[in-house]
Amino acid sequence: MILKQRRLGWLLFSFLALGMAIGLLLLAASDTVTFFFSPSELAQQPVKQDRRLRVGGIVAAGSVQRTGQTIHFVITDRVHTVPVLFSGILPDLFREGQGVVAEGVLGEDGVLHAFSVLAKHDETYTPRDVAESLKNKSQGKRAPETATVPSPRETATVPSPSGSAPAGQ
């Protein structure tokens, strides 16, 4: 029994030591572990020019302008904003009010010249008809905080193919 307790002690000790080592390692490298910076983080600690970086936030409402192939929009976290210039294919989920992550190089003018734009999905899962009625209720008011209200193009697809009453009800 003593031997077993001693082994358990060693096991716990070495595991804790290793855990702390890895924890410190990740803490030190959190700048590189993090996938993107928010506009506020970018405002606090300015980055070098021509360093590749990713900026994540919400596409500001009314900011999307298309001129030919290039698209211009503004990423916001409701405190600070970063303007983005991008030419290429946007993901399907891209729209105003949608969370996105743009990767590119920050120009001297403070504009992010992006070479890729990814859509960030949030953790809410809502059936189409529920989203529909929620939207109707909150019409006229400000959009909800998560601000992932579907655009008119999206809401035109009622009723969804299998969006009727589920089996369990």
Binding site: L93, T126, S164, P166
Partner: peptide
């Protein structure tokens, strides 16, 4: 088959 589609996905 019976669960609804998501409003975004």
């Amino acid at each position: 088959f019976f669960s609804p589609a998501d409003y975004q996905q």
